[in-house]
């Protein structure tokens, strides 16, 4: 009886698992198959198995037709720059909010919490006009010049997303619960607030840094609505608009699947490698927020 129930549970899990895994497996397997084979395998289990004449042709075509590597590099630059700056900037503010007393602190905290509700979508349209008017310092023919705008650049995809009220709040919650005794002792020894942050708080806050890094990474890697508006040249284009443009050209499905797999695999790899961390981060972020 018990065994039967267990078997039933596993069978049910397998069925649901199939539903959740099928599209991804199908995407990856199809990326190695010529178009006719994709269609031939479509309605059988072969659709998600690496069988038949597997080839890298789709990938070769994708690399030839689209500057995927450039977009990939852009996405990596944008994501890593934002995440690193974000960890620093957001945790610093959270530190002053949670561990220092200053007038106005309460209001700032309330404001940060209130800002959590503004979704990025609500401000992209005016933000576009704003960044189009912000000058950048450029370098042209041997001198600094003020260039027209931030559009079509990497920084326009980085700077607006560094400070994030949700991440500040996550840091704030974690820092708040660290016992005060440590920094009081350090303060008596004449440590500056930054030293306390650097040598006491940061080393004790590994988990929250990991959480925020992972969440920020996912957010940035998957950016879509903002880059399609603010970045149209290919020089600064990240991967998601890249694949959308490729998809819009209606080339072969094998190639589209190859492109999709290529931009997904790195995230999937990071996910599988840091699975435990990923899962606990997201769950923790939710339950605390």
């Amino acid at each position: 009886m018990k065994h039967l129930r267990k078997l039933g549970a596993y069978l049910f899990l397998l069925l649901i698992g199939y539903v959740f895994l099928f599209p991804l497996l199908f995407m990856i397997m199809s990326s190695f198959k010529p178009e006719q084979v994709i269609f031939a395998d479509l309605y059988s289990i072969r659709a998600i198995l690496p069988v038949g004449d597997l080839t890298l042709d789709n990938y070769r075509q994708v690399f030839e037709k689209s500057d995927v590597l450039l977009y990939f590099r852009n996405s990596i630059l944008i994501t890593s720059a934002t995440v690193i700056l974000g960890l620093f900037v957001n945790s610093l503010l959270a530190f002053t909010l949670s561990r220092m007393r200053w007038s106005g602190r309460k209001y700032i905290l309330a404001a940060v919490v209130a800002l959590m509700i503004i979704p990025i979508e609500a401000i992209v349209v005016p933000l576009l006009l704003l960044v189009s008017k912000l000058p950048t310092i450029g370098w042209e023919q041997g001198g600094f010049v003020l260039m027209g705008s931030w559009l079509n650049s990497l920084e326009v995809q980085i700077l607006p997303f560094v400070a994030n009220s949700f991440f500040i709040f996550l840091f704030y919650q974690f820092f708040r619960d660290i016992p005060k005794d440590f920094d009081e002792a350090a303060e008596l020894d004449g440590a500056t607030p930054f030293q306390i942050y650097r040598h006491i708080i940061v080393p004790m806050s590994g988990p929250v840094f990991a959480t925020v890094a992972i969440l920020h990474f996912l957010l940035m890697w998957n950016q879509y609505i903002w880059p399609i508006m603010a970045v149209q040249g290919e020089d600064a284009r990240p991967v998601m608009p890249g694949i959308q443009i490729f998809f819009g050209r209606q080339t072969s499905w094998g190639e589209i699947m190859a492109y999709a797999s290529f931009v997904t695999l790195p995230v999937l790899a990071v996910f599988l490698a840091f699975q435990k961390k990923f899962v606990s981060s997201l769950a923790g972020a939710g339950i605390k927020g």
């Binding site: 959740f20 890697w221 998957n222 879509y224 998601m240 997904t264 999937l268 990923f278």
Partner: peptide, 9 residues
């Protein structure tokens, strides 16, 4: 796993 796959993909 679908969560780590971009919604575009």
């Amino acid at each position: 796993s679908p969560v780590v796959t971009s919604i575009v993909v």
